[in-house]
Nucleic acid binder design. Structure first.
Length: 991
RNA sequence: GGAGCCGUGCCUCAAUGGUCACAGGAGCGGACUUAUAAUCCGAGAUCUGCUGCUGCAACAGCAGGUGGGGGUUCAAAUCCCCCCGGCUCCGCCA
């Protein structure tokens, strides 16, 4: 077979410097450096200045470790939002932040400093904490940037910054000044390991085994007053508790006023002991306490037990019978041991009855008995012991004294400290509280409670998904007052002076301003280094007792308060954000009001969403956001939460370094973040596979745009070939779905990133790779570059690429920017794709896309038939590729007309075959069409063109080039190629 | 105890009332060597029922089948109810 080796050189094959292999781990850092040198974030701000604003306010991650997948998801989603809003034309600044104060860091620093800490002055300890937090601020910043997140990384907000600390304190002062805050004795969750109060948000429930004991409380008031039949009997009640260590603080026994109680005699005779227990529980209690034959002596309402008295089982004092509706009949005895110092309900009851709420447990959890009530000469064995150690001792003492009626162990969910994971206790201490029942005035001047107003504000916010509204509403509706004080050091001091005599705080706005200014200048350390006298004006007197001696409060603020005032410390204060935020605050309900979005994991309903709402409603009378989106949890492939113990975690930093930050981003885009999401090495590898497909599609697009000069070569939309027009219509459809008719709604507008991912993926693989680009090869490779047909295709390829690169830019930020650089250069183009705007549907294709696509539907059905037939031929080895085939279609009239309207060439291209013959149908009945057109695929006839591989009837030798079809000959002539001299064979290298 | 989510082929998943349920991966079969560390085409869910036959097998066709069951509807993966399985969050236990 004679060959013409140089004929191949006359083809216009794809040509591009855009590499097939991405080498993401190596190349992404280079692109990051380019963005940095370009000052891209600042450029974006400049480019969008004056446009409508969109504010995504960053929830600060805690700066105490490297980032994990949840962080990557969180920041990735935010980056999609910010970038897509920016490309939709909004000015969307993004100031990332970090949560820096708090126990975890202080504990880490404690471990590092060891006993040295005790000798160090407070400012030095704070300095160590600051350094520790800063280390992780820097680490996380570099990690977030590594996965391509844009933002003001050079100046993130930090809750430990001087300005932030000053704003936090200012926010705090707002509460007492407006009457939201009280300081009082109250039981709070208390971690005896960390020696601090905890907020509800800081406890987690874990399984814990507690002793479970039934204790006899002997009645000391007149039994006949309860029921006449009890006169003269030895009466007692039985309480059940799982915390024997609270018994020294037992001040009352609570009964439900409406429950029925029985008096049971245990045994025969007038001397048998009698027990008062709830009727519903009598059987259970009798069994647990092994009461033998029981006989009911009386039956009465719990209300009858109000203010009866009992003897404490081991202390020399009496215990009051009280009534409370929280007593339940599903566990215990119906008689609830009440220790006001160690339970919220107990405390409330104690207040109603005037009981002593003093805690005999110190900050470290050591028990101390009230000497006045201790009836024996020697101190109790549990004196000074930790509560857990005291439990068995107290139980033994009960047993010894005959007060223990039953016992055992109970495994139950018990609150633990979320930081140190030790079980926590309830302990009444002096704390600062924000009262949810504070009366406030709404904007309309109506009186309501703080709680009520907060709930009303929740209602004005868009919650996504919608059930978030109900969730946070329930939380606010039922939560207790917010305990905002902590007995630690690493945080914002509650910078208040207390009266040495009566503990009354000084609430003086002028003094408060002075201290805020001090914090602004010197940071929170100033509270530790400045003397009382330097701040409190001379001659100040306590409003309560008139004393003029004051001391500094040493508690710090709950860290949830810190981050919860970020709307004030950042949005209201930061020069880049405040004008937008002020507009947001003042334009409620107005059209021009900018959106303020909070986007975090669902756990923040009780965290940041919650604390931010409360502070903003209290201080500004409105919610700090207009839109709250929540993400689900990242789980492993089997749907389990990721944990160190399971070893099923996926490290985004590791994935970025091995596969690329782009792969992490693609994974984030691939999942529906509103639900729980699966992640694993395996799934990441799948994303990498998808990435390669997308990248290769871009590469092929770019390769076929080589030499295309849009200004000179682009074909007017009306002159485009039908197939090319069809693809523009498809592209328009895609654009419309992704960015909406206006270029700013659609799936990006609704944060439906996984749909963008799916649709782009499908478009690239199905519409482009498997169809359009495949079919186009013949035209792209063999036609003269000057030909209308080829320029028509290029025009469309160019528009598709320009659209696609913008559509994926928020997600594939690295790759899109790389593609951008390889696109045909046009005047006035932005330096980065990220500075560009999303395409608008009508810019892609001005006509009715839906109609055109519907028209093509029938053609694609026929194409499927053709392919099925060709596959059969292929199986028999009669043809190989499509161009080896000739297809005959016996079509009914409408099909035939449709097919003929495209012309033979276009049809052959569409089916990717050498020849298409349309025949009138045989065997078609008169009424109408056959069920399906008769399609026959046959080996092509004619001679194969050596250049374009089509079989044609007009293939002939062209000089020394053998077997060149007439179309190729025309193209060669137009391109100025002449056949090589027959006598002088072409040498291998020319020019 | 409360709230909620998920269940689609071996795997990952799309599609929230409308044609024979999208696509990808893996595996299988094939083509191409003009996207080549590529590209293209094809077959492909388990099971049940019915029909074709004297009968059986194979095969073919039809129907049903989106965890199971029921309902609304001309029409359901999609809406409603119940159940099963998996998961998450919240709360509580004196």
């Amino acid at each position: 077979m004679p060959s013409t080796p140089d004929l191949k050189a006359t083809l216009t094959l794809p040509q591009t410097a855009f590499p097939m292999k991405a080498n993401l781990p190596q190349n992404e850092p280079h692109r990051l450096a380019r963005w940095a040198s370009l000052g891209l974030y600042e450029e974006l701000r400049k480019a969008r200045r004056g446009r409508p604003t969109y504010l995504l306010h960053d929830g600060p991650p805690y700066a105490n470790g490297p980032i994990h997948l949840g962080h990557a998801l969180n920041k990735g989603l935010k980056d999609f939002v910010v970038k897509s809003k920016t490309m939709a034309g909004f000015d969307a600044p993004y100031v990332p932040g970090y949560d820096c104060h708090g126990l975890p860091i202080e504990i880490k620093v404690d471990e590092k400093l060891g006993h040295k800490k005790l000798e160090m002055p407070a400012p030095a300890v704070l300095e160590a904490c600051r350094a520790y937090a800063q280390k992780y601020v820097d680490l996380q910043t570099s990690q977030f940037q590594r996965i391509g997140c844009f933002g003001r990384w050079a100046a993130p907000y930090k809750t430990m910054a001087r300005g932030y600390e000053a704003r936090t304190l200012e926010a705090f002062y707002g509460f007492p000044e407006k009457g939201f805050v009280y300081r009082g004795l109250k039981p709070v969750y208390w971690c005896i390991h960390d020696r601090t109060a905890l907020a509800e948000a800081e406890v987690e429930y874990q399984q814990h085994t507690s002793p479970s004991v039934f204790v006899r409380y002997k009645l000391t008031s007149d039994p006949a007053a309860i029921a006449p039949s009890l006169a003269g009997r030895d009466v007692a009640t039985i309480i059940w508790t799982t915390t024997p260590w609270t018994l020294p603080a037992s001040m009352a026994v609570a009964f439900h006023p409406d429950f029925e109680y029985v008096a049971l005699a245990a045994g025969e005779g007038p001397n048998a002991p009698v027990y008062l227990i709830a009727a519903a529980l009598a059987e259970q209690v009798a069994a647990a306490c092994k009461l033998r034959t029981t006989k009911e002596l009386a039956r009465f309402q719990g209300a009858a037990l109000d203010r009866v008295t009992f003897q404490h089982p081991f202390l020399d004092r009496s215990v009051l019978g009280v009534l409370a509706t929280y007593v339940t009949a599903d566990a215990g005895t119906g008689a609830v041991h009440t220790a006001p110092a160690h339970g919220a309900d107990d405390f409330a009851t104690g207040q109603r009855y005037g009981l002593d709420p003093t805690s005999r447990v110190d900050a470290g959890g050591h028990l101390h008995v009230d000497p006045a009530a201790w009836p024996f000469a020697v101190p109790p064995a549990f004196e000074g012991m930790k509560v857990w150690a005291a439990n068995p001792i107290i139980v033994a003492m009960l047993e010894e004294r005959g007060a223990l009626l039953g016992g055992g162990e109970l495994e139950h969910a018990y609150p633990h400290c979320w930081r140190c994971h030790h079980p926590v206790i309830f302990r009444a201490t002096e704390q600062w509280f924000i009262s949810l029942e504070t009366p406030v005035k709404s904007a309309q001047g109506q009186e309501k409670t703080f709680r009520r107003l907060a709930i009303e504000e929740i209602d004005k916010v868009v919650w996504d998904p919608a059930w978030g509204k109900e969730r946070i509403t329930n939380m606010i509706a039922t939560r207790p007052d917010w305990c905002i004080s902590r007995q630690r050091i690493w945080g914002v001091p509650i910078a208040v002076f207390l009266c040495e005599t009566c503990n009354q705080p000084i609430i003086d706005p002028n003094l408060n301003r002075k201290i805020v200014d001090l914090f602004e200048r010197e940071g929170a350390e100033a509270w530790h280094t400045t003397d009382v006298a330097a701040l409190v004006p001379a001659g100040s007197r306590c409003a309560g007792c008139g004393s003029h001696n004051f001391r500094k409060e040493t508690d710090i603020l709950d860290v949830w308060f810190d981050s919860g005032v970020s709307w004030m410390a950042v949005c209201e204060a930061d020069p880049d954000l405040r004008s937008t935020y002020t507009l947001f605050q003042n334009q409620a309900g107005a059209q021009c009001r900018p959106e303020v979005l909070y986007l975090e994991g669902g756990d923040q309903h009780r965290g940041w969403f919650h604390s931010s709402l409360l502070t903003s409603v209290a201080l500004r009378g409105r919610a700090p956001y207009s839109h709250v989106a929540t993400a689900g949890w990242t789980l492993d492939e089997l749907g389990r939460a990721m944990s160190k113990s399971l070893g099923n975690g996926v490290d985004p930093v590791d994935i970025a370094s091995r596969m690329g930050g782009e792969i992490v981003r693609l994974w984030v885009a691939s999942v529906d973040f509103r639900e729980d999401m699966a992640a694993s090495e395996n799934l990441m590898a799948r994303c990498a596979e998808i990435y390669r497909k997308l990248r290769n599609t871009f590469r092929f697009l770019l390769g076929n745009l080589a030499g295309f000069n849009p200004a000179a070569d682009a074909v007017d939309e009306r002159e485009l070939l039908p197939l090319d027009r069809y693809m523009l219509a498809r592209t328009r459809e895609l654009v419309e779905k992704i960015v909406g008719p206006d270029g700013k709604s659609g799936w990006y507008g609704a944060f439906e990133f996984h749909r963008v991912y799916q649709a782009v993926n499908e478009f690239a693989i199905v519409d482009l790779s498997a169809f359009y680009l495949d079919v186009l090869k013949d035209r792209m490779y063999t036609f003269a570059p000057t030909s209308l047909a080829r320029r028509s295709a290029q025009t469309v390829l160019w528009r598709i690429t320009e659209a696609l690169v913008r559509l994926v830019a928020p997600i594939l930020s690295f790759t899109a920017d790389e593609v951008w650089e390889h696109l045909p250069q046009i005047a006035g183009r932005e330096a980065s794709v990220h500075l560009a705007l999303f395409p608008k549907p009508e810019e892609i294709f001005a006509e009715d896309a839906t109609k055109l696509i519907a028209e093509w539907k029938r053609l694609f059905d026929l194409r499927d038939e053709v392919f099925a037939e060709m596959e059969a031929e292929r199986k028999q080895g009669k043809i190989g590729k499509g161009l080896d085939a000739r297809v005959e279609i016996a079509a009914n009239e409408s099909d035939a007309a449709l097919l003929r309207s495209f012309g033979d060439e276009a049809l052959a291209e569409f089916f990717n075959v050498s020849e298409v013959v349309i025949r009138s149908p045989r065997g078609v009945n008169k009424e109408g069409a056959p069920a399906r057109p008769a399609v026959v695929a046959l080996p092509a006839t004619g001679v194969k063109c050596a250049r374009c591989w089509r079989y044609t009837q007009d293939t002939a030798d062209y000089g020394a080039w053998q077997n060149v079809c007439a179309r190729c000959r025309g193209a060669l002539e137009e391109m100025g190629f002449t056949p090589p001299n027959i006598e002088q064979p072409q040498t291998e290298t020319t020019s």
